[in-house]
Nucleic acid binder design. Structure first.
Ligand code: MN
Length: 729
DNA sequence: CCTAGCCTCATAT
DNA sequence: TGAGGCTAGG
């Protein structure tokens, strides 16, 4: 389930972006997400046990997109079920079985479409499917790793240890496992939402020195997580209030004061809950993961002495090193612990040649260094995150950087800014300030700056349409029908039109030192990096320069004085003050972009020029862009994609079965057998299924006979026929 | 008024 | 898994 409502809650820590900003880096993927979506296209075949590689192809499209962006992907898969999640897991299985039976029932009644629909929603991602994808990846020298337990913690380990620069997932849990950067909702073009840990404190509404990952995790567990349901009436908001109020670090103690702090006297915090709370916390902190360098299982963070063995057991129990290794590389089924494959990275990789592609831009896919290589080095220099491949062909080539510390934009309230999206005006602006490509090559610096400032505004407004933000309640909806004038200004009763547009800026930038770019124009820009604040490596992490500890020491919270000031600034202002400040800022600072004036005065041109980092940097990046980057993303991915073939699936190509025929046959057979599922069960148990068998046989080559039988087994079990309990009616 | 909880829906081609 | 809508209860 993840943490309900966490992504919207983390709005202030989120940015819309493209994965290409991690070009040159490494990305770890929560592959279950891809498999699950990919399985939709072939749900019926999967339910019928028919061979299909559609889900593999689907996943490889994403892989190819990443490769096309010069990103090294590491696919991470789920392993064994965690003791902590046993009931959740069995509940899910029950639901799936129920849905499958219902689907069978619907199909039997002739409602084939509805039945198929239900079937689609009750697909189970088997490890066999994962293995097929793993095999396809091995063909292309792409690293895969099966987590000892949850992929979540494994992904966090890869991110924290610096092996992966960012995690791609749909699961909000990744945030509380300690990931630094997580990329949510990534589509096949690479667009998604980046959530960064060093901005969490903004979402919680505290200054960064009052923030800790411990607090964040406590808050999330309190609001209800996979390992522990929440107390009645407690959600993220209440949990956040409590965590911010309490100074007690010992949660077992602190929780006793929960009801009084929240004024909920009916709330009963039992000792059982408090124990379970600590167990859940341990499961997040100390879950078993696999270290690819040591080739053995370690804890996500080393347990402290106060952690009991029982609690640790809850977070996964160690297995022998060899089994752990075989499991990690995908040779063993995590459920049955049976051998299913015989991959050996030490011998396999050396014999393989690099896969070639027809891509116009490169003859070969870069051979990334495998994490299984004994001499694998963590990328010392993290990728330039400021780099962005354009997804906006119209504006391609235009780059501008806003140094927002100079602008010192105050934080606007989300409620208000959400109101101010005005698409007509945005389009108007784009029209006004967009140039065609040939022109853009020979533009003057000031031209670019002007257009970019305008478009940055639209970029920011685009951001407000982020899926994360869409759900925000709209307090003005009833009072304001027209958005010609900002509702926030109506609200204030005065139209401060001069700075109206400034009020639209959202707090894109948190730290004074961070530079923000337009989403439309930001391309490849070498920006000065923030100094990295490094923690000491914990014992569980491979010793490298880039090792960050999961839990912040005092050092790690080091910020520049300016950054702290800015945090204070953001957190302390009310809307009214913000508006006042804006006026002050505009008077006192030279570099305030007067958006309202559309930068039409020469004065402003000069001013804006200064906000370029430096002219030389600017020139360099422009030429680099033209040389190295594809104009449109689709071009490169589609070039890559056809080259992907999967030999061990090719042999299945002749085994196409008309699935609806097969599905119908179930219905037919079922009605022949007295029309009840119970009858089917009986038939299944005594292995008498002549009709089904013959239908399948007709389409299956002899050579695949064993698979046919397997398929039938699958089919049967998929409709719950092997279960003793019949339908309830 | 806000919050949390419950319900339904979608995920690909 | 998340998104989004709707509602009862504090
Ligand atoms: Mn999870």
């Amino acid at each position: 389930m993840g943490i309900t409502g966490l992504l919207p809650f983390l709005e202030k820590a989120s940015t819309k972006g493209n994965i290409s900003q991690f070009a040159g880096g490494t990305v770890a993927i929560d592959t279950y997400c891809w498999l699950h979506k990919g399985a939709f296209s072939c749900a019926e075949k999967l339910a019928l046990g028919q061979p299909t590689d559609a889900y593999v192809t689907y996943c490889m499209r994403f892989v190819n997109m990443l490769l096309g962006n010069n990103i090294k992907p590491i696919l991470v898969f789920d392993g064994c079920h965690l003791p902590a999640k046993k009931d959740t897991e069995s509940k899910r299985r029950e639901l799936r079985d129920k849905n499958r039976k219902k689907a069978a029932e619907l199909i039997r009644l002739g409602q084939v479409a509805d039945g198929k629909n239900l079937l689609r929603r009750s697909i189970d991602i088997s490890h066999e499917m994962a293995l097929n994808l793993i095999k396809a990846c091995h063909e292309r020298n792409i690293d895969c790793i099966v987590a000892p337990y949850e992929a979540d913690s494994q992904l966090a380990y890869l991110n924290i240890s610096g092996i992966a620069d960012v995690i791609i997932t749909e699961d909000s849990d990744l945030t509380l496992f300690g990931c630094k950067k997580i990329f949510f909702k990534m589509d096949v073009a690479g667009n998604g939402v980046l959530v960064e840990q060093d901005r969490f404190h903004l979402a919680m509404g505290v200054r960064s020195e009052h923030f800790s990952m411990d607090k964040f995790r406590y808050m999330c567990i309190l609001s209800g997580c996979d390992y522990l349901p929440s107390l009645p009436g407690i959600g993220l908001v209440k949990a956040c209030k409590f965590i911010n109020k309490t100074a007690e670090t010992d949660m077992h103690k602190a929780l006793t004061r929960l009801s009084s702090y929240l004024n909920m006297k009916s709330l009963d915090v039992s000792i059982e809950y408090r124990d379970a709370f600590l167990r859940a916390d341990v499961t997040f902190k100390h879950q078993l993961v696999f270290c690819p360098f040591k080739r053995k299982q370690v804890r996500l963070t080393p347990p402290t002495t106060d952690v009991t063995p029982e609690q640790l057991h809850y977070a996964g129990k160690e297995m022998p090193d060899d089994l752990a290794w075989q499991l990690a590389i995908g040779n063993y089924d995590p459920m049955s612990l049976k051998k299913i494959h015989d991959y050996d990275p030490d011998t396999y990789a050396s014999g393989k040649s690099i896969t070639r592609t027809n891509s116009w831009k490169a003859a070969t896919v870069v051979k990334h260094d495998s994490i299984w290589n004994t001499d694998f080095k963590i990328n010392k220099k993290p990728p330039k995150e400021d780099k962005q491949t354009t997804l906006w062909p119209d504006t391609f080539g235009k780059v501008t950087i806003l140094k927002t510390s100079d602008i010192a934009l105050p934080l606007t309230s989300p409620k208000r800014s959400y109101e101010e999206v005005n698409e007509m005006e945005q389009e108007e602006m784009i029209k006004l300030y967009t140039r065609n490509k040939s022109e853009s090559n020979k533009r003057s610096c000031s031209d670019v700056d002007v257009s970019n400032l305008q478009l940055d505004t639209s970029g920011l407004e685009e951001r407000e349409k982020s899926p994360i933000l869409v759900r925000r309640a709209n307090p003005f909806a009833k009072t304001t029908k027209s958005l010609e004038i900002s509702p926030s200004l109506l609200d204030k009763g005065k139209n401060r039109s001069k700075f109206r547009n400034l009020a639209r800026f959202r707090p894109t930038v948190v730290d004074n030192n961070i530079l923000t770019e337009s989403k439309f124009f930001a391309q490849t820009t070498d920006l000065p990096k923030l100094p990295n604040f490094k923690n000491c490596a914990t014992a569980n992490y491979p010793a490298t320069e880039k090792c960050y500890g999961l839990y912040q020491s005092a050092d790690s919270k080091a910020h520049t004085a300016e950054a702290l000031e800015y945090d204070n600034y953001l957190l302390s202002r009310t809307d009214d003050q913000q508006l006042e400040c804006k006026e002050l800022d505009i008077k006192n600072e030279r570099r305030i972009p007067a958006v309202e004036d559309r930068m039409e005065t020469s004065q402003n041109h000069a001013v804006i020029q200064e906000s370029c980092i430096s002219e030389s940097t600017y020139e360099e990046t422009v030429t680099e862009m033209h040389g190295a980057l594809p104009v449109a993303e689709e071009e490169s991915t589609s070039d890559l994609q056809p080259n992907y073939t999967k030999p061990n699936l090719l042999q299945w190509k002749n085994t196409k079965v008309n699935s609806s025929t097969a599905l119908l046959s179930i219905g037919v057979l079922n009605s022949q057998n007295n029309g009840t599922l119970r009858a089917m069960q009986g038939a299944a148990k005594t292995n008498r299924l002549p009709r089904t068998r013959s239908v399948n046989k007709k389409f299956q080559p002899v050579k695949r006979k064993s698979q046919v039988e397997q398929g039938q087994q699958c089919l049967l079990s998929s409709f719950g026929f092997q279960k003793k309990t019949g339908l309830q009616h």
